[in-house]
Amino acid sequence: MKKYLFVIFLFCLRLNANAQSISFYDLTNLTNLSDGEAHTYLVLGRVFKHQYIEEKDGKKIEHFRSINSKVSEQTITIGVNTVLSSGVILRSVTYTTRNPQHVLNLIAQAKSGRLTMKFQGSDVDNNIYVFDNDFYHVKMYISTTENKGTVVIEQKDFIGY
Results as ranks from 00 to 15, higher is better:
85 S>P: 08
79 G>P: 09
69 S>L: 13
105 N>D: 15
111 K>R: 08
151 V>S: 03
16 N>Q: 08
2 K>G: 09
81 N>V: 07
103 V>N: 12
109 Q>T: 01
156 K>V: 01
61 I>S: 01
24 F>A: 05
13 L>N: 14
118 K>C: 06
11 F>Q: 01
81 N>Q: 14
97 T>D: 05
94 T>H: 14
107 I>K: 00
42 L>K: 03
54 E>A: 08
38 A>H: 05
126 N>Q: 09
60 K>S: 09
55 E>K: 12
149 G>Y: 02
153 I>K: 05
1 M>K: 04
93 V>R: 09
8 I>M: 05
75 T>H: 11
25 Y>Q: 14
158 F>M: 01
129 Y>D: 02
8 I>F: 10
161 Y>R: 01
150 T>H: 03
61 I>F: 07
15 L>D: 12
113 G>N: 10
115 L>H: 05
28 T>L: 05
104 L>Y: 13
121 G>A: 04
10 L>W: 08
117 M>N: 06
72 S>M: 11
19 A>T: 06
154 E>K: 00
96 T>Q: 11
95 Y>D: 04
154 E>I: 01
103 V>G: 03
115 L>A: 05
81 N>S: 13
141 Y>H: 11
70 K>Y: 15
60 K>R: 11
74 Q>L: 02
37 E>S: 12
158 F>H: 01
142 I>P: 03
57 D>Y: 06
115 L>S: 04
135 F>P: 02
13 L>S: 11
5 L>K: 07
81 N>W: 11
145 T>R: 03
92 S>E: 14
23 S>L: 03
1 M>R: 01
118 K>W: 05
44 L>G: 09
16 N>K: 07
87 G>F: 07
161 Y>V: 00
125 D>F: 06
117 M>S: 04
44 L>P: 08
134 D>G: 12
55 E>C: 07
89 I>W: 08
81 N>A: 13
99 N>W: 00
108 A>I: 06
110 A>T: 09
145 T>S: 07
20 Q>A: 10
39 H>V: 06
157 D>Q: 09
78 I>K: 01
130 V>E: 06
124 V>E: 15
131 F>A: 02
125 D>L: 10
22 I>T: 07
37 E>A: 14
62 E>Q: 13
79 G>R: 00
33 L>I: 01
137 H>A: 02
150 T>S: 13
42 L>D: 10
132 D>G: 00
157 D>M: 01
126 N>A: 08
146 E>M: 12
125 D>E: 10
61 I>E: 00
35 D>T: 09
41 Y>F: 11
133 N>Q: 06
95 Y>F: 15
15 L>E: 13
151 V>T: 05
59 K>C: 03
151 V>K: 02
64 F>V: 02
71 V>R: 14
88 V>W: 01
62 E>M: 12
123 D>M: 09
103 V>T: 10
107 I>A: 05
11 F>D: 04
65 R>F: 04
55 E>Y: 10
57 D>T: 02
60 K>F: 09
104 L>P: 00
72 S>R: 15
20 Q>H: 07
101 Q>S: 10
135 F>Q: 06
121 G>P: 07
78 I>W: 03
48 F>H: 03
157 D>Y: 10
